[in-house]
Design a protein around this nucleic acid. Structure first.
Length: 763
DNA sequence: CTCCTCATAAACAGAT
DNA sequence: TATCTGTTTATGAGGA
């Protein structure tokens, strides 16, 4: 979810349309894709290799990439809170940098050694790395460990098949008196000073080990990621092949594409092998500190546990599988050990725990609410135990499960690809916005975002986006997608009068709106108008308007019936939209005069109000409600930005850029241009400016300013029915005095909107 | 609290 | 007939 993190960071003032909530970002998977369900499924891939990667399900891995790394590098060490404080020395106590250096050197040596050993192993094994000829083969080679049944039975034992493991094990002296012993001593409180001293030494070594482990962890993670990606590409490739094979006998073209796929496959496999090798090396690095520990004379079953994780992803998976299958272990984890547990003595034990916890977590992804969540299964299992049994009997490594897993994998792959794309896009967008903000706003933002605005969510799930970017994003609609906790649709819309800013806003965020399933903060009327004035002929058919909505806004690719109805409704309702019969049907045009005439009283408080807060309100609904210290500045900046655009993009007066420009562009009003007309056009807008002549106006309102001095606010009842285009052109003076409110006698007030506050410029 | 704007739903009719 | 287009009414949310 590239956008998700961003979305989550908004303030409470943001409202998401209810329809949006489940799918903040629309992936092009389907109209009504249910990301949630995909997620649920993807979190646990039945595919063996996924088991090995611990808690980072594929999706999560990608989604929280940064977070994941952080966790891996910091969580464990920081989690070293001692349950029984007396036992454990302070964390930083023995962190000698020099020692670390030495250790690193040793580590490197041993890494080389490991590599060598591993190479030898490969030679011995003789199953080299020739490219697989069949699909199955590929799976076996690159996906984890075809945990064969035979291997499965070796619960928690060192996988015999892994010679490299054996080799590695041999490198290590047989462990003696380790953590276990240490713990016993400690528990008995019978430590002599010398014992204590040696204990401390051991501790320091352990710490060193752990630190190094962290260092290695990061690289490892990256490699794991790469491996995952490659494997998934491979899977994708295979799937494509299968598809072609299945449906391909018809076309010859498929044979060529097959060849291509095969080629790709080979390349992927090669890459994968390389990466896997790297991974092994890293595993060795991660393991190496343990050797030190052992060399120090520690011994313990727990210490041994890491060695159950062979320096190979396959075997790790096996281990995880074993853990998963070992019910007592699972239960123990669930019920027993607190996650915060981690004393130095337990480092290794904790590793084991991690793996087991991982297994448990994964199992939990397949089991929920008493139902097996295996794709297409939904068998009811009373308890975890029953589920485990079911899992181990029904979902074994057979063809069906494999196929299901493959499907799931495809789902995950596609989501992941999409995610990556979207994330990149987002990054680029944010970067761009940030840049343009800096360049575009004459007044750099000096305030820092108020912490209250940036919710916890933002901090948590926000990808690597700088605060500055976030700030700049505040005024962008991006943040609207946040605040998932806020129910109901967005009520705040940038009102019509801000259409000027609308043009710029849409332009600036075009890519964003196009791809993010975020409701644009503009009214339907504004959007319709925008669509029309963007068209070459300043006229569109209804269908073209639809298309514009869909092409411009991801949001409008859903719930078509709803918004289309709304569009039609708006077209009919607002007098500013005029239906023009055409040879080939009817087209809609915008009567700019009417457009600006509508509901002035409201708008005056909106976008055109004080450029400060009020204007900001229009700019960003999220700020409307509770302008913050930075909100004002941002708004100001953005308003200025708009004015800049106006200045450069329009020769018309008016305070708002596109407003008059658009007016001049209006097909039906090209000939208007009278000052009276214009002033009346601006009427509603200018009212508030009487007391809000700010820097904004100083920028581009010279023409307007002198008018403002003479403006007279008048309440006029205008019957739009009586004003046709020509009448309007004839003179606004008339239309200002024209009729009275309609004969609508509904209980409702909606027709008061026709009370126009117009400005007469008698200058 | 009232007024206003807007979104949404829906009924309905004519055109295609 | 089904669908599209266009009009109209009703209602509720939310802001000023």
């Amino acid at each position: 979810m590239a956008f998700l993190p961003l979305f989550v960071c908004s303030g409470e003032s943001v409202v998401l349309p209810s329809s949006l909530e489940p799918v903040p970002v629309l992936l092009d998977i389907g109209e009504e894709n249910d990301l949630g369900s995909h997620r649920g499924g993807s979190a646990v891939s039945p595919w063996p290799r996924h088991t090995r990667y611990g808690d980072d399900g594929i999706m999560e891995h990608d989604v929280d990439g940064d977070v994941a790394i952080n966790l891996s590098t910091s969580q464990r060490p920081s989690a070293a809170t001692t349950p029984n404080g007396s036992v454990e020395p302070e964390d930083g106590e023995f962190q000698a940098a020099s020692l670390e250096k030495v250790l690193k050197e040793q580590q490197q040596q041993q890494q080389l050694e490991l590599e060598r050993v591993w190479d030898q192993d490969r030679e011995v094994k003789g199953n080299g790395s020739t490219s697989p000829s069949s699909e199955k083969r590929v799976q076996q080679e690159h996906s984890p460990p075809p945990a064969s049944d035979a291997q499965k039975t070796h619960n928690a034992s060192v996988p015999a098949s892994q010679t490299q493991t054996a080799s590695a094990s041999q490198m290590m002296a047989s462990p003696v008196s380790g953590l276990h012993h240490m713990q016993q001593l400690l528990q008995q409180h019978v430590l002599s000073p010398s014992q204590l001293q040696s204990l401390m030494k051991q501790h320091s070594l352990l710490q060193q080990h752990h630190q190094q482990k962290q260092l290695v962890e990061l690289g490892k993670k990256q490699i794991e990621q790469t491996m995952q990606q490659l494997q998934e590409q491979l899977q994708l490739n295979l799937i494509q092949q299968t598809q072609i094979l299945q449906s391909g006998d018809k076309k010859k073209a498929s044979s060529s594409s097959l060849q291509q796929l095969a080629l790709q496959q080979q390349q992927l496999i090669q890459q994968l092998q390389i990466v896997q090798r790297q991974y092994v090396v890293h595993q060795g690095m991660g393991m190496q500190p343990m050797m030190l520990v052992q060399g120090a004379g520690l011994t313990s079953r727990d210490v041994m546990s890491p060695w159950k994780d062979p320096p190979n992803g396959n075997d790790q998976q096996l281990h995880a599988t074993n853990s998963k299958c070992s019910l007592p272990d699972v239960n123990g984890i669930i019920s027993g050990i607190p996650s915060s547990r981690s004393s130095r003595d337990d480092i290794c034990f904790e590793d084991k725990l991690d793996n087991e916890r991982t297994a448990t977590d994964k199992v939990q992804h397949l089991y929920g609410h008493g139902v097996c969540k295996w794709p297409g299964c939904e068998v009811i299992c009373e308890d975890l135990q029953a589920f485990m049994k079911h899992l181990n009997t029904e979902h074994t490594l057979d063809d069906r499960s494999t196929a299901q897993a493959r499907v799931q994998m495809q789902v995950v792959s596609q989501l992941e690809l999409q995610l990556q794309k979207e994330r990149d896009r987002l990054q680029a967008m944010m970067h761009h916005l940030h840049m343009s903000k800096q360049l575009g706003s004459p007044e750099p933002l000096k305030e820092s975002p108020s912490p209250t605005k940036m919710t916890v969510n933002s901090a948590v799930s926000q990808p690597a986006v700088s605060m500055g970017v976030l700030v700049s994003a505040v005024r962008s609609p991006v943040l609207q997608a946040t605040a998932p906790n806020v129910p109901g649709p967005i009520r705040r819309r940038i009102s019509d009068k801000s259409a000027l800013s609308l043009a710029g806003e849409i332009q600036r965020n075009r890519e964003f709106y196009k791809n993010a399933d975020v409701r644009p903060p503009f009214t339907y009327a504004s959007l319709i108008r925008q669509s029309i004035i963007e068209s070459p002929d300043k006229q569109l058919t209804l269908n073209e308007i639809y298309n514009w909505f869909q092409n411009t806004f991801c949001y409008f690719r859903r719930n078509a019936a709803t918004w289309k109805n709304a569009v039609r409704h708006n077209l009919s309702l607002h007098k500013c939209f005029m239906r023009v019969e055409n040879v080939k049907g009817a087209v809609w045009t915008v009567d700019e005069v009417e457009f600006y005439k509508r509901r002035p009283q409201r708008c005056s408080s909106g976008p055109l109000a004080q450029p400060v807060v009020g204007g900001g309100a229009s700019k960003s609904p999220t700020l409307n409600h509770s302008p913050t210290i930075y909100g004002d500045h941002i708004i100001q900046a953005s308003m200025l930005e708009d004015n800049m655009q106006f200045l450069t993009g329009s020769t018309n007066l008016c305070n708002r850029d596109s407003r008059l420009r658009d007016s001049s562009q209006s097909p039906s009003h090209d000939h208007i241009g009278g000052s009276i007309h214009r002033s009346s056009v601006n009427g509603g807008l200018l009212i508030k400016q009487e007391h809000a002549l700010t820097a904004e106006q100083q920028h581009g309102m010279r023409d307007v300013e002198h008018q403002v001095h003479h403006i007279i606010k008048r309440e006029v009842h205008v019957d739009y029915e009586d004003i046709d285009q020509d009448a309007q052109v004839d003179g606004m003076a008339e239309d200002l005095t024209i009729t009275s409110p309609q004969d609508h006698h509904h209980h409702h007030h909606q027709h008061h909107q026709h009370n126009d506050s117009n400005i007469i410029d008698d200058a």
